[in-house]
Design a protein around this nucleic acid. Structure first.
Lengths: 340, 340
DNA sequence: ATGAAATTTTTACTCCCGTAAAATTTAAAC
DNA sequence: GTTTAAATTTTACGGGAGTAAAAATTTCAT
């Protein structure tokens, strides 16, 4: 015949413990004496009361919420990163809150506004990049301790991402050593990474004494596979490829390109009888399931997540310091499969 | 020299309008006279004030939050559904909140608890299914108006999903008519859909006078592609496939299976010189980029989202009725590509 | 048992906004 | 220029928990 407990006041009553102590308990169970903790927990089982989160956050300067914002959640790269980040945050006692910009500036701004209204303790954001409303994002980071990842726009307390100038030479070297030097397939860059990759490609090729060949195809939006397939089809059928080795700006583009090659009857791979070698970048979760499996450069998902989250926790605990903005560049690893 | 406006009281002061009216404005801008609305909006630009969401929700019986819970966000099917749902909710003036169970019962329960503590106006949930803590989910739906989608466990006010007994016959018929009758490749079912699909397969085959052949492979978790590839490799190399036409329980499994076939040197497709036909189910976003492109049955993403969201809005507006639980089954469409 | 230290209880104020009721002002209608 | 209806202002309370300060109690070592 348990009555419904709605407030902490009521719970204090039925548990026989004063409200301030109950409050202390919920903020940190270790902060009350063992015996009272036990009494509270017994009552808790009997009445299953949970404090009202809105009332809690109303008085707290900083909540336990951590915002995670990505440019496109349906991209498996971000889906996977978010998955790992969410886990880390929960393990540390925070409540992650996920937002996606769906590739649109307006929605990114909306997401940041919605997040900010939650007064989060901190935020992990991968900005749209080129399409971000820079001022908007900067204003956000003024109010909320923020670690930026993946796409390095110069806001927030820190950046964590992969080092294109390390990763691209890896794959370029390999491709040059094992066959015809690659051309570079890119689409209009959605973020700074895309530019860095192209620049890194050019640099790497020149270092090796080869002539860099960049193919910029059309297409916008986040349908990378479709762009890779459509433009790949066009390039192949019109024989406009300057090299039989194609390094794609990212794996999703490569997946589309491989599909195009397949449909045109070109065999992709490094073996005998193959007409084309294709490589990507990122080691997307699906890269190992292409036909043939994709040779690529793997971003270190765990490291990106770990470093980002660590830095954010540090910011939350110790506050912002006057130190210079931290930039963590993480090494990538070459992943050799059979596409190149 | 604008001072920081933190409360509605202060904003009322600087805008020269009373607080209750400001409050009305934020609840519905149309509810105040044109002239005052203008005055408020002018002040709003000058001071960029936003009401504190916690204080708001503390007093409202029902918030503007809508929870979206999926079993695995990194699955492109759910990523896409979530994307569409989020959009619809925002357009209707709600704040969607996304949760993923990451395939684990404990995390599903955590997500539901976290969501419930937000006192959402309603929830759209795709339960884990077989691995759901049924009682937990049921309790949740008692407190929160809920539409269940994709996986029909019998809780909540309504279910919206695809009709396996309509979709599977479509593809079975087609496969039988165009070649050898298919065997059915499934993994241990993660949700009721998987069972229905198998049963529908058996039924469809029997109707056509063929002998149904179900292959149940091992594997758990949500790495469907990996399971499809590993088990496909095994089945092919050991020649254990009872038919040269393979209908996979879902597209992700099929993607893995196709990769396996490719690596074993088997040509997939319906043309001459092809050793194997492979078909899937769902029309995942990546299905068109397999090699060869995947023949499958398309779930109607928009319809699923539309119907779910409509019903939820109806529930929120009109409250729960005593009517029977609504079950909406949406038709699928055959998508013929070249894999079968 | 005694004193000191650690906890808990009491009391009371704060956070920021929703909202109801009564009083007042404004706008529209005739 | 009334009359009326509509909108706004005033005033006041409530929601549920954080938190500070002082008083009371418990714990533990000596």
């Amino acid at each position: 015949m348990k009555r419904k407990i709605k407030t902490m006041e009521e719970f204090a009553e039925v548990s026989g413990i004063s409200r301030p102590t109950i409050s202390k308990y919920f903020n940190d169970p270790e902060s009350v004496r063992r015996s009272t903790r036990d009494r509270i927990e017994v009552a808790l089982e009997a009445y299953s009361y949970r404090p009202n989160i809105f009332a809690i956050n109303q008085n707290r300067k900083l909540t336990k919420t951590i915002g995670i914002v990505v440019p496109y959640l349906a991209d498996p790269f971000f889906a996977e990163i978010v998955r790992l980040m969410e886990r880390r945050c929960m393990d540390a006692g925070f409540s992650p809150m996920i937002f996606s910009a769906h590739g649109e500036q307006r929605l990114e701004n909306d997401a940041l506004a919605a997040l900010q209204s939650q007064r989060p303790a901190g935020a992990l954001i991968a900005p749209l990049g080129r399409h971000s409303d820079f001022e908007s994002v900067r204003r956000f980071t003024e109010e909320v301790p923020t670690v930026v990842f993946d796409s390095n726009i110069k806001v927030g307390e820190a950046f964590v991402g992969s080092d294109s100038f390390q990763s691209i030479p890896l794959i370029v070297d390999y491709l040059c050593r094992s066959g015809e030097p690659p051309c570079f397939l890119e689409m209009p860059p959605v973020n700074p990474n895309a530019n860095k990759r192209r620049d890194a490609y050019i640099l790497a090729m020149e270092r090796l004494g080869h002539d860099p060949k960049v193919i910029r195809v059309d297409g916008n939006g986040w349908d990378f596979e479709r762009i890779g397939m459509d433009e790949g089809t066009r390039l192949i059928s019109k024989k406009e490829l300057p090299s039989e080795t194609v390094l794609c700006s990212n794996d999703r583009l490569a997946i589309g390109f491989i599909a195009a090659a397949y449909q045109q009857g070109l065999r992709v791979g490094h073996g005998a009888g193959c007409a084309l070698r294709v490589a990507g970048h990122d080691d997307h979760p699906w890269a190992r399931f292409t036909c043939p499996p994709l040779t690529t450069v793997a971003q270190d998902y765990s490291a990106i997540v770990d470093r980002s989250v660590e830095k954010l926790f540090d910011l939350i605990e110790n506050g912002r310091t006057e130190e210079e903005r931290l930039e963590v560049l993480i090494e990538c690893k070459l992943v050799l499969r059979s596409s190149a």
